[in-house]
Nucleic acid binder design. Structure first.
Length: 848
DNA sequence: ACCGGTGCTCTCTAT
DNA sequence: GAGCACCGGT
């Protein structure tokens, strides 16, 4: 189906004189008429038209990558490839959703007869579904299709228990560090046994022991972590021929976006799925840019993209280099920066467009000043005619968003923070979902522990410890132990009171699940109803209601509203859910192609799954969806607001006006990256990603002082600022014009002298909203730096004083406590009730 | 059993 | 400035 590029053209076509060589005109004319080929450069068109065999698209930032992939998919369909045999993988739901939307649009535009059954999804989502589909036949001990997906906090809870159960100390064995080691191992496809086999020293051997215990805990709980999702799916496909043949037979074209960020497991997964039964070269098309590889720390292996050509013989490589997004100064800035990376294949970034505003670099006094300057800059951009939704602020750490938020709120500018997971991390939401998880999977100990005594129902720590013992003796889950107790008959070392509380709890769960059958008159008929029942009958709702009554104020209205929100999210999910589209159930197929769909050899798995009660399978799918939400998913292009997000979340997006804040040593590059060249280069790529998101205007800021961990510290401008192309920059030193008017001889131009490193300099403590001019304070020699001398008094705060807080509004000081290093003020705010704030850091202004 | 206060510790990025 | 563990009061 490859069309040649040498078709003769009609000699007398009117516009032919404009083109040289003339022979290209036929292509041009054909492309103009073809919605899939119009407005493409030659390499873009080659990529779109490539049909069979491995294809590597090296797509530089802003080179029209998305356009190429979506058109290529549509092109395949038009060429006769059945949509259900195409699999496209992304990293976020949002990217998948966008791709799906655009492909669907294109298919409609070209009037494609068959459009259904395309699989465009994320790695994790695909694996979650495959794992449910093959859980029963994959022979993974303990795993069944009701499994729970553990998020970071669940992992944390489990690994802490594992460490404690081994008689180890969580202060010597930091859960975070242990989990990171386990994650790295899983990304390298090492299970606990393989890890133990390579462990040579005491540290590694201990980690291996914890890994084993943690993994046992997951299996017993019928739970998987994010890494397992991928790893166990790969194991299932490797060991289960039936499963492997099914996916290989189904998907004949595999496309992977952001390929530079794939890890080993993802590589193996893709290879497994794409492999052709007859060993012909796989139809695998990967798109990526090594310069935008920013997930090395979570196991992404850049070799996947660098060595793709070696992995697959006869790979076609197409480079998309021309940038259609950014102005020349922005692009030149990005280019000079990324050139500093030594471990890099050079490629030119180029644009054919001229003009464009210079990139701005502003040095600010501190983070509040920075936020003010950025806000002013946005005000100016708005006056230029840029819409709010075309503006964005990027930062290295989520913690940097707060001050920016305060300032934007103060200015009355609309903004949204890209934190899709934030809602699900809230205590009350997490609790509601934990109840649902226990309903779906009673073996899930971590979720059960979270809600067993929430609201308090007389099953306290002592009781749980005793139940633990019973569970341990029986090698059963916690819930099975509870059930055993509820059934009575056996003597347990429990008070009658505790036993009755447990009996009631078990009966409550049983009522919701119809004793696990999800059938019967008493069982909910809809997910929404189930969710509502769980929230009310568990007492959660009442719990937050009565709390609100006690404090006499409004804050818990928030929580109640969030619980309502969970119910409506369940309702929404229910509306859109259809079991036929759930690949865990079924290989999806559309009516018109069902006869040719390869799905008829899988009755064994489908039959089992079809026996699943509909409510249960819907609940599984709902919990799965909720578990796999990402921060980037929260970005709503139609929101009409300035977007705030981390640099990592910014990948793949573009905005007219971009501000990157916090360009300071220790922040960007992050302090952890200082020791290693590889990590430093990843930080540079991260900065590069941020810069290349900007279409028209770019502002970068660096603050002289920044309050970090509650400590106001001297900051040094990022080395990256030094590496930028000065001819495209306007540098503006506003540091002395900040609120406090800090006098200091150290300008950013003198940064070279400040070789001590970023954060560890002065330990000076002062309120960030200082009212006094502090010109006499020497950053390095401030006496009495621990700040325990004066407490609130030195700021004129005392009981009865009225204060204003940027977020909480106006309030009155009720009490000041001075103990240890932290002085706290209890303040009663008019709007949000009583809060206790650490005085040194609270953004308080005294008012009259 | 539960709650609030307190003091200490430590932070990145994210599916 | 958040999260956590611990302690003391109810």
């Amino acid at each position: 189906m490859e069309e040649t590029h040498t078709t003769p053209m009609p000699a007398d076509t009117p516009d032919s004189a404009d083109f040289d060589p003339i022979a290209d005109f036929a292509d041009f004319a054909r492309a103009q008429a073809d919605p899939l080929l119009t407005d493409l450069t030659d390499p873009q068109r080659d990529a779109v038209e490539h049909a069979e065999g491995p294809l590597l698209i090296l797509a530089a930032a802003g080179s029209g990558k998305t356009r190429v992939i979506t058109r290529r998919v549509a092109h395949l369909v038009r060429a006769g490839v059945p949509p259900w045999s195409i699999l496209a993988l992304t990293f976020t739901n949002k990217a998948a959703g966008e791709m799906r939307e655009r492909v669907t649009g294109l298919l409609a535009e070209i009037g494609a007869a068959r459009t259904g059954g395309l699989t465009i999804t994320t790695f994790h989502s695909l694996c979650a579904r495959l794992l449910r589909r093959y859980a029963d036949i994959a022979n993974i001990p303990g795993l069944n299709p009701d499994y729970t997906i553990y998020d970071s906090s669940d992992q944390q809870a489990l690994v802490k228990r594992s460490i404690a159960n081994l008689g180890l100390n969580t202060s010597n064995w930091a859960p975070r560090a242990v989990l990171s080691a386990i994650s790295n191992a899983k990304n390298e496809m090492m299970d606990a046994e393989a890890f133990a086999a390579t462990a040579s020293d005491f540290y590694a051997r201990t980690i291996a022991t914890i890994y084993k215990s943690y993994q046992d805990g997951l299996r017993r709980a019928n739970a998987v972590d994010f890494d397992d999702l991928l790893l166990l799916t790969v194991r299932a496909l490797q060991t289960c021929e039936e499963a492997r043949e099914e996916v290989q037979h189904r998907w004949r074209h595999v496309m992977i976006d952001e390929y530079q960020d794939t890890n080993k497991v993802q590589f193996v997964l893709a290879s497994l799925i794409a492999a052709q039964p007859d060993n012909t070269p796989p139809n695998i098309c990967v798109v990526g840019d090594p310069d935008q590889s920013i997930y090395g720390w979570r196991g992404a292996d850049i070799r996947n993209i660098l060595e793709f050509e070696d992995q697959y013989a006869a790979t076609r490589v197409i480079a998309l280099g021309e940038n259609f997004r950014s102005t020349a100064p922005i692009l030149a800035t990005a280019d000079t920066l990324i050139r500093r990376n030594k471990m890099r294949k050079h490629k030119d970034l180029f644009t054919s467009r001229d003009g464009g505003e210079l990139v701005e670099l502003t040095l600010c006094a501190d983070e509040r000043h920075e936020a003010e300057l950025v806000t002013d800059w946005f005000r100016a951009r708005q006056q230029d005619g840029v819409e709010w939704k075309e503006m964005a602020v990027f930062y290295r750490m989520n913690a940097l968003s707060r001050v920016m938020e305060d300032e934007l709120r103060r200015a009355g500018f609309p903004y949204v923070i890209a934190r899709g997971t934030a809602f699900y991390e809230r205590e009350e939401v997490k609790n509601a979902l934990s109840y649902l998880r226990v309903v779906a999977n009673p073996a899930d100990d971590v979720s059960l522990r979270r809600i067993l005594n929430k609201p308090t129902r007389g099953i306290g720590a002592t009781t749980i410890a005793r139940v633990d013992t019973i569970a341990y003796k029986n090698q059963s889950s916690l819930f099975d132990a509870l059930r055993l107790i509820a059934q009575g008959g056996v003597e347990f070392d429990l008070t009658a009171r505790a036993q009755s509380a447990i009996t009631k709890f078990v009966a409550m769960i049983d009522a919701w699940t119809g004793h696990g059958a999800f059938l019967g008159a008493d069982v909910s008929s809809s997910l929404e109803e189930l969710t509502e029942r769980v929230i009310t009958e568990s007492g959660l709702e009442k719990h937050y209601k009565s709390k609100a009554e006690k404090s006499g104020e409004a804050p818990d209205e928030d929580r109640l509203a969030n619980l309502e929100e969970v119910i409506s999210s369940a309702h929404e999910f229910e509306q859109e859910y259809s079991p036929e589209d759930d690949p865990a159930f079924n290989n999806p197929q559309t009516p018109e192609n069902s006869s040719e769909s390869p799905d008829h050899n899988s009755e064994s798995t489908s039959a089992e799954l079809l026996e699943t009660p509909p409510l249960l399978s819907m609940l599984r799918a709902y919990l799965e969806t909720v578990s796999l939400v990402s921060d980037a998913d929260a970005i709503d292009p139609a929101s009409g607001a300035i977007t705030l997000m981390t640099l990592h979340a910014a990948k793949g997006l573009e905005f007219d006006a971009v501000a990157i804040i916090g360009l300071e040593d220790g922040l960007l590059p992050h302090s952890r990256a200082r020791e290693s060249q590889a990590e430093l280069e990843e930080e540079r790529r991260l900065c590069f990603v941020g810069i290349t998101r900007a279409k028209q205007r770019l502002l970068m800021t660096s603050a002289r002082y920044r309050t970090h961990r509650g400590l106001r510290e001297r900051a040094i401008p990022s080395q990256f600022l030094n590496e930028l192309d000065q001819t495209h920059l306007i540098v503006s030193d506003q540091a002395d014009h900040g609120a406090g008017g800090w006098e200091d001889e150290d300008t950013w131009a003198a940064r070279g002298r400040a070789s001590r490193g970023g954060w560890e300099n002065s330990r000076s403590r002062s309120r960030s909203s200082r009212s006094a001019n502090s010109a006499s304070q020497e950053a390095d020699g401030w006496e009495n730096a621990t700040g325990d001398s004066g407490g609130g008094a030195e700021y004129g705060l005392s009981v009865g004083v009225r204060v204003r807080h940027p977020q909480f509004g106006v309030g009155m000081v009720e009490a000041i406590t001075m103990s240890g290093a932290n002085s706290r003020a209890r303040i009663k705010f008019h709007d949000v009730g009583v809060k206790t704030l650490v005085l040194q850091y609270a953004r308080l202004d005294v008012i009259n």
